[in-house]
């Protein structure tokens, strides 16, 4: 006999694809990496999504350190400097009260993003919970919850937001609440659809067969596996929430002066568009850039979180 010793017939086997038409190649010996790190790694290979994430990180950092970054206070009025075009002293120019627009854009980021995150946070938590319960339990739970969602969905979004603000009064917090309520049915639907698929997976049944409670099934198996579309929806909804905040502020229902908010600044700049374009242009660009980046990130996540795409990209990038 030559060669290496023969492994015993029932020995542990290392390696690949012995089941039918599956498992490509020698992935078996790759060390385990947490999924989120793999996701980040894959995202980094998608240039648009990577740039978008970097820009968003920049915007968030800007919002956090706004006080330090802003050259002036948001409400520092200086009448002699009113309506100055962009210059070294005021890179984005000044408005009709002589306030520095760069400072107001920087400080407005905080307001816009806070409202956006808060609104999506409300919608995400409540919507996902409703979708999770409706999708998992089905039957009358599904019927009741989703009919309520349909009613909410059927209501024109702006009207609903205006109604909430009319009842609770304007302001950032209430704006976030209003937008959040409008977005609940979207998250409920996305979650429900995803849960309906995951619920039928054999591994959920397998987990039930060893005695796992519904709570455990929902938190350990169903939600994590149903998460990808919800994550994508979150990113895209953030874009829309920033936009919605701008729209409501524009209508005078959101953030109240003199607090800076991009939407509000846009509204205020409207009157001067023919003599001082920079009043509306820079807040508009800020909105545009943020919304675009959230959308691009959403698209990138959609690709990365799709298991089929994942395999292809993971293989291709070796």
């Amino acid at each position: 006999m030559t060669g290496a010793p023969v492994p015993p017939p029932d020995a542990p086997v290392a390696g690949q694809g012995d089941a039918k038409g599956t498992s490509p190649g020698p992935t078996a010996l790759r060390p385990a990496r947490p999924r989120w790190r793999e996701t980040l790694g894959l995202l980094a290979r998608n240039p648009t999504a990577a740039v978008a994430s970097l820009v968003l990180v920049g915007i968030v950092l800007m919002a956090i350190f706004d006080e330090t970054l802003a050259p002036q206070g948001p409400s520092e009025v200086s009448v002699q400097d009113r309506l100055q075009s962009p210059s070294w002293a005021h890179p984005f120019g000044t408005d009709d009260l002589g306030r520095d627009i760069l400072s107001r854009v920087i400080l407005g980021a905080g307001v816009s993003l806070r409202v956006g995150f808060l609104a999506v946070g409300i919608a995400l938590v409540i919507g996902t919970l409703i979708g999770l319960l409706a999708g998992f339990y089905g039957r009358w739970v599904d019927d009741v919850l989703m009919r309520v969602m349909d009613m909410l969905f059927a209501f024109p979004a702006v009207l609903l937001a205006i109604a909430v603000l009319a009842v609770r009064g304007p302001g950032s917090g209430n704006t976030a609440l209003a937008i959040g309520i409008v977005y609940i049915p979207i998250f409920a639907r996305v979650t429900r659809a995803s849960v309906l698929g995951v619920r039928e997976e054999v591994y959920v049944r397998a987990s039930r067969s060893v005695g796992a409670s519904d709570f455990r099934l929902l938190t350990r198996h169903v939600l994590p596996n149903a998460a990808p579309p919800i994550i994508v929806q979150t990113s895209i909804s953030l874009a829309f929430a920033v936009l919605a905040e701008a729209a409501l502020s524009f209508l005078g229902l959101g953030t109240q002066p003199p607090n800076p908010s991009w939407g509000l600044m846009l509204a205020e700049g409207r009157g001067f568009i023919d003599i001082a374009w920079w009043l509306a242009f820079f807040p508009g660009m800020a909105i545009f850039l943020t919304v675009l980046c959230f959308n691009l990130l959403g698209d990138g996540l959609r690709d990365v979180l799709d298991p089929r795409q994942r395999t292809l990209m993971a293989g291709g990038g070796r």
Binding site: P7, P9, D10, A11, V13, A14, G15, G17, D18, G25
Partner: peptide, 10 residues
Amino acid sequence: LATVPGVPPA
């Protein structure tokens, strides 16, 4: 049953 250890080559 007799078994063939391991798995086919890639």
